[in-house]
Computed example of a mutant assay.
Amino acid sequence: MDLRAYIRQIPDFPRPGIVFYDLAPLLASPDAWPVALGRLTRGVLAHAPDVLVGIESRGFLLAAPLALKLGCGFVMARKPGKLPGPCLGHDYALEYGKDRLEIQQGLLAPGQRVLVVDDVLATGGTLAAACALVRQSGAQVVAAATLIELGFLAGRQRLAVPYIHVIGYD
């Protein structure tokens, strides 16, 4: 199945000059969504994670069902002020601004095998920041995964871990 047929490219969103790769049609398809999740599962299995960290918000859509399929835990990496209690945080630069990710303290244990999940790898800033945040907790980042990689933006070069994707645009 060609999963690219289920991805819409929306120009000038969220800002002029940016092309947004919208996976909503894929999620809405009862045929394409299970295929995409199955392919992502096969790519991730070899890394044997204990926990998946999903990046807000579209990364949650992939990481939560993937964690259920793999039989492992799921932890949210969110923007500031969205999680209760003490949090660890990491500031980073985006291709169109600055941002911060946080996770709740105590959800990741030192030495745990963590795989970080998001929807799209573009320039790599958000995924690299999430990996740094996991390391800050003392856990081990074993790999990162996305549904879509925009290879022409070379974001993979910012990752110091094995990387898995299902759909690539070069």
Rank of each mutant, 00 (worst) to 15 (best):
G97A: 06
G54K: 01
P16R: 15
A139G: 06
A77D: 02
A5S: 12
G54S: 05
G73A: 08
T123R: 05
A109R: 15
I164T: 15
A24N: 14
D22S: 05
I167V: 15
A128C: 11
L27M: 14
Q112S: 11
C131H: 01
D31G: 00
A144K: 11
K82Q: 08
L121S: 10
G85E: 00
L94C: 07
G81S: 00
G17K: 08
R39Q: 15
A129H: 04
G81Y: 09
G151C: 14
L115V: 02
G73Y: 01
D12M: 09
Q157G: 11
T146D: 02
Q157W: 03
S57W: 01
A93W: 09
K69L: 15
G17N: 11
D119I: 14
C131T: 06
Y92P: 03
L66S: 07
R58G: 05
R4M: 13
P16V: 10
A143P: 11
I103A: 00
A48P: 04
G17Q: 08
Q104A: 08
R42V: 04
V134G: 00
C131E: 02
L66N: 10
P30T: 11
V19F: 12
I148V: 15
S57L: 09
L27W: 04
G124Q: 09
L133S: 03
Y92C: 08
F74H: 07
A130P: 01
Q9P: 00
F152G: 02
A64I: 13
G81V: 06
A63I: 09
V141A: 00
G168R: 06
Q157D: 15
V117T: 11
G97R: 00
C72G: 04
A36D: 11
G168T: 09
L66C: 11
R39Y: 00
F60D: 03
P16I: 04
P162Q: 08
L68K: 11
L133R: 01
T126E: 07
L68W: 06
F20R: 10
V134I: 11
E149Y: 08
R42Q: 14
I167F: 12
I103P: 05
A154Q: 14
F20Y: 15
P162K: 08
G151S: 14
D170C: 08
A36E: 12
A24C: 15
L52D: 06
E95L: 07
R42H: 09
L45T: 09
A77K: 07
V120I: 13
V114A: 01
P34V: 09
L83M: 14
S57I: 05
R113T: 02
P86G: 10
I55W: 01
D99I: 01
Y92W: 07
R39T: 07
F74T: 07
Q136T: 13
L3K: 13
F60Q: 05
V161A: 08
I10K: 05
V53E: 00
E56Y: 09
T41Q: 15
V166C: 07
Q105S: 10
L153I: 04
L45W: 14
V35T: 14
S57Y: 07
V51C: 11
D31F: 03
V116M: 03
A128R: 10
A93S: 13
Q112E: 10
L37W: 08
Y6F: 14
D99S: 15
